[in-house]
Protein backbone atom coordinates (compact mmCIF):
# COMPACT_ATOMS: atom_id res chain seq x y z
CA UNK A 1 0.00 0.00 0.00
CA UNK A 2 2.83 2.37 -0.71
CA UNK A 3 1.40 4.24 -3.66
CA UNK A 4 -0.52 7.27 -2.41
CA UNK A 5 -3.66 8.00 -4.39
CA UNK A 6 -5.18 11.43 -4.67
CA UNK A 7 -8.57 11.81 -2.91
CA UNK A 8 -10.35 12.21 -6.23
CA UNK A 9 -9.01 8.92 -7.53
CA UNK A 10 -9.85 7.18 -4.28
CA UNK A 11 -13.44 8.44 -4.47
CA UNK A 12 -13.74 7.42 -8.11
CA UNK A 13 -12.41 3.94 -7.40
CA UNK A 14 -14.79 3.51 -4.49
CA UNK A 15 -17.72 4.79 -6.58
CA UNK A 16 -17.03 2.19 -9.25
CA UNK A 17 -16.70 -0.60 -6.70
CA UNK A 18 -19.83 0.45 -4.84
CA UNK A 19 -21.83 0.58 -8.09
CA UNK A 20 -20.66 -2.91 -8.96
CA UNK A 21 -21.54 -4.17 -5.48
CA UNK A 22 -25.04 -2.69 -5.79
CA UNK A 23 -25.61 -4.28 -9.20
CA UNK A 24 -24.32 -7.63 -7.97
CA UNK A 25 -26.35 -7.60 -4.77
CA UNK A 26 -29.58 -6.23 -6.28
CA UNK A 27 -31.12 -9.54 -7.46
CA UNK A 28 -30.26 -11.18 -4.16
CA UNK A 29 -31.79 -8.25 -2.32
CA UNK A 30 -35.00 -8.43 -4.39
CA UNK A 31 -35.29 -12.19 -3.82
CA UNK A 32 -34.84 -11.88 -0.08
CA UNK A 33 -37.27 -8.96 0.48
CA UNK A 34 -39.95 -10.44 -1.73
CA UNK A 35 -39.74 -13.82 -0.05
CA UNK A 36 -41.20 -12.17 3.05
CA UNK A 37 -44.14 -10.58 1.23
CA UNK A 38 -47.57 -11.73 0.20
CA UNK A 39 -48.15 -12.73 -3.40
CA UNK A 40 -50.20 -9.59 -4.05
CA UNK A 41 -47.56 -7.33 -2.59
CA UNK A 42 -44.85 -8.94 -4.72
CA UNK A 43 -46.63 -8.06 -7.90
CA UNK A 44 -47.98 -4.69 -6.65
CA UNK A 45 -44.61 -3.27 -5.67
CA UNK A 46 -41.64 -5.64 -6.14
CA UNK A 47 -39.17 -3.16 -4.68
CA UNK A 48 -41.03 -2.36 -1.47
CA UNK A 49 -39.49 -3.55 1.77
CA UNK A 50 -41.49 -6.06 3.84
CA UNK A 51 -43.78 -3.95 6.08
CA UNK A 52 -46.47 -4.93 8.60
CA UNK A 53 -49.04 -4.31 5.82
CA UNK A 54 -47.56 -6.65 3.21
CA UNK A 55 -45.54 -9.04 5.41
CA UNK A 56 -46.35 -12.71 4.89
CA UNK A 57 -44.62 -15.98 5.95
CA UNK A 58 -46.63 -17.96 3.43
CA UNK A 59 -43.66 -18.70 1.15
CA UNK A 60 -41.60 -20.18 3.98
CA UNK A 61 -44.61 -22.06 5.33
CA UNK A 62 -45.18 -23.67 1.94
CA UNK A 63 -41.53 -24.59 1.58
CA UNK A 64 -41.22 -26.04 5.08
CA UNK A 65 -44.54 -27.91 4.89
CA UNK A 66 -43.41 -29.55 1.70
CA UNK A 67 -41.74 -32.35 3.72
CA UNK A 68 -39.09 -33.21 1.13
CA UNK A 69 -37.38 -29.89 1.27
CA UNK A 70 -35.05 -30.92 4.08
CA UNK A 71 -34.06 -33.87 1.97
CA UNK A 72 -33.22 -31.53 -0.95
CA UNK A 73 -31.01 -29.49 1.32
CA UNK A 74 -29.32 -32.60 2.58
CA UNK A 75 -28.75 -33.81 -0.99
CA UNK A 76 -27.25 -30.48 -2.03
CA UNK A 77 -24.95 -30.44 0.98
CA UNK A 78 -23.80 -34.02 0.44
CA UNK A 79 -23.11 -33.46 -3.22
CA UNK A 80 -21.33 -30.14 -2.69
CA UNK A 81 -19.18 -31.23 0.25
CA UNK A 82 -18.26 -34.58 -1.28
CA UNK A 83 -17.39 -33.02 -4.64
CA UNK A 84 -15.40 -30.30 -2.92
CA UNK A 85 -13.47 -32.87 -0.90
CA UNK A 86 -12.55 -34.92 -3.94
CA UNK A 87 -11.70 -31.88 -6.08
CA UNK A 88 -9.36 -30.55 -3.40
CA UNK A 89 -7.79 -33.91 -2.60
CA UNK A 90 -7.21 -35.13 -6.14
CA UNK A 91 -6.52 -31.64 -7.48
CA UNK A 92 -3.85 -31.00 -4.86
CA UNK A 93 -2.28 -34.42 -5.36
CA UNK A 94 -2.16 -34.02 -9.13
CA UNK A 95 -0.81 -30.50 -8.74
CA UNK A 96 1.92 -31.78 -6.40
CA UNK A 97 2.93 -34.45 -8.87
CA UNK A 98 3.00 -31.99 -11.76
CA UNK A 99 4.99 -29.38 -9.89
CA UNK A 100 7.32 -31.67 -7.96
CA UNK A 101 8.29 -34.61 -10.13
CA UNK A 102 10.10 -34.63 -13.42
CA UNK A 103 8.65 -37.36 -15.61
CA UNK A 104 8.05 -37.92 -19.30
CA UNK A 105 5.00 -36.03 -20.53
CA UNK A 106 4.82 -33.80 -17.46
CA UNK A 107 4.16 -30.63 -19.46
CA UNK A 108 1.77 -32.41 -21.79
CA UNK A 109 -0.20 -33.75 -18.84
CA UNK A 110 -0.40 -30.25 -17.36
CA UNK A 111 -1.68 -28.82 -20.63
CA UNK A 112 -4.18 -31.64 -21.04
CA UNK A 113 -5.59 -30.96 -17.58
CA UNK A 114 -5.68 -27.21 -18.17
CA UNK A 115 -7.62 -27.78 -21.41
CA UNK A 116 -10.55 -28.90 -19.26
CA UNK A 117 -10.94 -25.33 -18.03
CA UNK A 118 -11.73 -24.16 -21.55
CA UNK A 119 -14.18 -26.88 -22.64
CA UNK A 120 -17.56 -26.74 -20.86
CA UNK A 121 -18.44 -30.11 -19.41
CA UNK A 122 -22.08 -29.61 -20.45
CA UNK A 123 -21.06 -30.28 -24.07
CA UNK A 124 -20.60 -33.89 -23.03
CA UNK A 125 -23.98 -34.23 -21.34
CA UNK A 126 -25.34 -36.84 -23.72
CA UNK A 127 -22.26 -39.03 -23.41
CA UNK A 128 -22.24 -38.60 -19.63
CA UNK A 129 -25.90 -39.59 -19.44
CA UNK A 130 -25.22 -42.69 -21.57
CA UNK A 131 -22.34 -43.65 -19.28
CA UNK A 132 -24.45 -43.16 -16.17
CA UNK A 133 -27.26 -45.24 -17.64
CA UNK A 134 -24.78 -47.96 -18.60
CA UNK A 135 -23.28 -48.04 -15.15
CA UNK A 136 -26.62 -47.80 -13.42
CA UNK A 137 -25.79 -44.59 -11.62
CA UNK A 138 -28.76 -42.57 -12.84
CA UNK A 139 -30.73 -41.08 -9.98
CA UNK A 140 -27.91 -41.44 -7.48
CA UNK A 141 -25.92 -38.72 -5.74
CA UNK A 142 -22.75 -40.59 -6.76
CA UNK A 143 -23.40 -39.62 -10.37
CA UNK A 144 -23.50 -35.95 -9.42
CA UNK A 145 -20.38 -36.18 -7.23
CA UNK A 146 -18.46 -37.85 -10.04
CA UNK A 147 -19.47 -35.28 -12.63
CA UNK A 148 -18.80 -32.31 -10.38
CA UNK A 149 -15.42 -33.69 -9.35
CA UNK A 150 -14.46 -34.00 -13.00
CA UNK A 151 -15.77 -30.50 -13.64
CA UNK A 152 -13.82 -28.92 -10.77
CA UNK A 153 -10.48 -30.69 -11.21
CA UNK A 154 -8.96 -28.75 -14.15
CA UNK A 155 -9.13 -25.35 -12.47
CA UNK A 156 -8.02 -26.82 -9.13
CA UNK A 157 -4.97 -28.51 -10.66
CA UNK A 158 -4.07 -25.39 -12.61
CA UNK A 159 -4.23 -23.01 -9.64
CA UNK A 160 -2.70 -25.38 -7.07
CA UNK A 161 0.19 -26.41 -9.32
CA UNK A 162 1.25 -22.78 -9.62
CA UNK A 163 1.10 -22.31 -5.87
CA UNK A 164 2.95 -25.55 -5.15
CA UNK A 165 5.81 -24.50 -7.37
CA UNK A 166 6.37 -21.63 -4.97
CA UNK A 167 6.83 -23.94 -1.95
CA UNK A 168 10.54 -24.10 -1.11
CA UNK A 169 12.35 -27.12 -2.55
CA UNK A 170 14.71 -27.05 0.40
CA UNK A 171 11.82 -27.67 2.76
CA UNK A 172 10.66 -30.74 0.84
CA UNK A 173 14.23 -31.99 0.57
CA UNK A 174 14.78 -31.46 4.30
CA UNK A 175 11.72 -33.64 4.85
CA UNK A 176 13.11 -36.33 2.56
CA UNK A 177 16.44 -36.36 4.37
CA UNK A 178 14.62 -36.58 7.70
CA UNK A 179 12.84 -39.68 6.41
CA UNK A 180 9.34 -38.34 5.77
CA UNK A 181 7.39 -40.24 3.12
CA UNK A 182 6.20 -38.37 0.03
CA UNK A 183 2.67 -38.51 1.47
CA UNK A 184 3.83 -36.95 4.75
CA UNK A 185 5.70 -34.28 2.83
CA UNK A 186 2.55 -33.57 0.81
CA UNK A 187 0.08 -33.58 3.68
CA UNK A 188 2.08 -32.07 6.52
CA UNK A 189 4.55 -29.75 4.79
CA UNK A 190 3.09 -28.65 1.47
CA UNK A 191 -0.68 -28.57 2.06
CA UNK A 192 -0.54 -26.24 5.09
CA UNK A 193 1.55 -23.82 3.06
CA UNK A 194 -0.90 -23.70 0.14
CA UNK A 195 -3.97 -23.41 2.38
CA UNK A 196 -4.96 -19.98 0.99
CA UNK A 197 -4.88 -21.38 -2.53
CA UNK A 198 -6.98 -24.33 -1.40
CA UNK A 199 -9.60 -21.92 -0.02
CA UNK A 200 -9.68 -20.01 -3.29
CA UNK A 201 -10.21 -23.21 -5.22
CA UNK A 202 -12.84 -24.32 -2.71
CA UNK A 203 -14.93 -21.20 -3.21
CA UNK A 204 -14.63 -21.22 -6.98
CA UNK A 205 -15.62 -24.89 -7.05
CA UNK A 206 -18.37 -24.84 -4.47
CA UNK A 207 -20.68 -22.10 -5.79
CA UNK A 208 -21.31 -23.50 -9.32
CA UNK A 209 -22.00 -26.93 -7.84
CA UNK A 210 -24.48 -25.64 -5.31
CA UNK A 211 -26.28 -23.54 -7.91
CA UNK A 212 -26.30 -26.13 -10.70
CA UNK A 213 -29.64 -27.10 -12.17
CA UNK A 214 -28.49 -28.89 -15.29
CA UNK A 215 -26.97 -32.13 -14.05
CA UNK A 216 -29.45 -32.75 -11.19
CA UNK A 217 -32.25 -32.33 -13.73
CA UNK A 218 -30.68 -34.76 -16.19
CA UNK A 219 -28.82 -37.28 -14.01
CA UNK A 220 -30.76 -37.31 -10.74
CA UNK A 221 -34.29 -35.96 -11.13
CA UNK A 222 -35.85 -38.60 -8.83
CA UNK A 223 -37.61 -37.33 -5.76
CA UNK A 224 -35.09 -38.79 -3.30
CA UNK A 225 -32.03 -37.32 -5.06
CA UNK A 226 -33.30 -33.83 -5.89
CA UNK A 227 -31.06 -30.91 -4.91
CA UNK A 228 -32.34 -27.60 -3.58
CA UNK A 229 -32.14 -25.81 -6.91
CA UNK A 230 -34.04 -28.56 -8.64
CA UNK A 231 -36.48 -28.83 -5.72
CA UNK A 232 -37.35 -25.15 -6.00
CA UNK A 233 -38.55 -25.85 -9.53
CA UNK A 234 -41.60 -27.74 -8.23
CA UNK A 235 -43.10 -24.38 -7.40
CA UNK A 236 -42.67 -23.19 -10.95
CA UNK A 237 -45.55 -24.54 -12.94
CA UNK A 238 -46.34 -24.27 -16.60
CA UNK A 239 -49.32 -22.06 -15.90
CA UNK A 240 -49.04 -20.99 -12.27
CA UNK A 241 -45.85 -20.23 -10.36
CA UNK A 242 -45.86 -20.07 -6.57
CA UNK A 243 -43.56 -17.08 -6.36
CA UNK A 244 -43.68 -16.90 -2.56
CA UNK A 245 -42.40 -20.45 -2.32
CA UNK A 246 -39.79 -20.05 -5.07
CA UNK A 247 -38.36 -16.92 -3.50
CA UNK A 248 -38.39 -18.44 -0.02
CA UNK A 249 -36.67 -21.57 -1.29
CA UNK A 250 -34.02 -19.54 -3.03
CA UNK A 251 -33.47 -17.34 0.04
CA UNK A 252 -33.00 -20.43 2.15
CA UNK A 253 -30.64 -21.88 -0.42
CA UNK A 254 -28.34 -18.89 -0.04
CA UNK A 255 -27.74 -19.55 3.66
CA UNK A 256 -25.55 -22.70 3.64
CA UNK A 257 -23.35 -21.53 0.83
CA UNK A 258 -22.99 -18.15 2.54
CA UNK A 259 -21.80 -19.89 5.69
CA UNK A 260 -19.29 -22.00 3.75
CA UNK A 261 -18.10 -18.87 1.99
CA UNK A 262 -17.61 -16.93 5.21
CA UNK A 263 -15.56 -19.77 6.67
CA UNK A 264 -13.15 -19.76 3.76
CA UNK A 265 -13.26 -16.05 2.96
CA UNK A 266 -10.43 -15.16 5.33
CA UNK A 267 -8.28 -17.75 3.61
CA UNK A 268 -9.60 -16.64 0.22
CA UNK A 269 -8.51 -13.05 0.71
CA UNK A 270 -5.08 -14.27 1.79
CA UNK A 271 -4.97 -16.42 -1.36
CA UNK A 272 -5.92 -13.65 -3.76
CA UNK A 273 -3.49 -11.16 -2.24
CA UNK A 274 -0.68 -13.66 -1.68
CA UNK A 275 2.47 -12.10 -3.07
CA UNK A 276 0.70 -8.78 -3.62
CA UNK A 277 1.19 -7.62 -0.06
CA UNK A 278 4.69 -7.55 1.46
Amino acid sequence: MSARLSPARTIAAHAVLLTYTLIALFPVFVIVINSFKSRKAIFADPLALPMPGNFDWVGYETVLKQGDFFLYFQNSLIVTVASLFFVLLFGAMAAFALSEYRFKGNTLMGLYLALGIMIPIRLGTVAILEMMVASGLVNTLTALVLVYTAQGLPLAVFILAEFMKSVSDDLKNAGRIDGLSEYRIFFSLVLPLVRPAMATVAVFTMIPIWNDLWFPLILAPAEETKTVTLGAQVFIGQFVTNWNAVLAALSLAIVPVLILYLISSRQLIRGITAGAVK
Partner: peptide, 17 residues
Protein backbone atom coordinates in the same frame (compact mmCIF):
# COMPACT_ATOMS: atom_id res chain seq x y z
CA UNK B 1 18.21 -39.95 1.30
CA UNK B 2 16.98 -40.72 4.81
CA UNK B 3 18.84 -44.05 4.84
CA UNK B 4 22.19 -42.61 3.80
CA UNK B 5 23.02 -41.50 7.36
CA UNK B 6 23.68 -37.95 6.35
CA UNK B 7 22.25 -34.60 7.32
CA UNK B 8 21.92 -31.47 5.27
CA UNK B 9 21.80 -27.80 6.15
CA UNK B 10 20.10 -25.65 3.54
CA UNK B 11 20.67 -22.08 2.46
CA UNK B 12 17.04 -21.19 3.17
CA UNK B 13 17.17 -23.04 6.55
CA UNK B 14 14.15 -25.14 5.48
CA UNK B 15 12.74 -25.42 8.97
CA UNK B 16 9.29 -26.99 9.30
CA UNK B 17 7.08 -23.94 9.88
Amino acid sequence: PAKRELAMVFQSYALYP
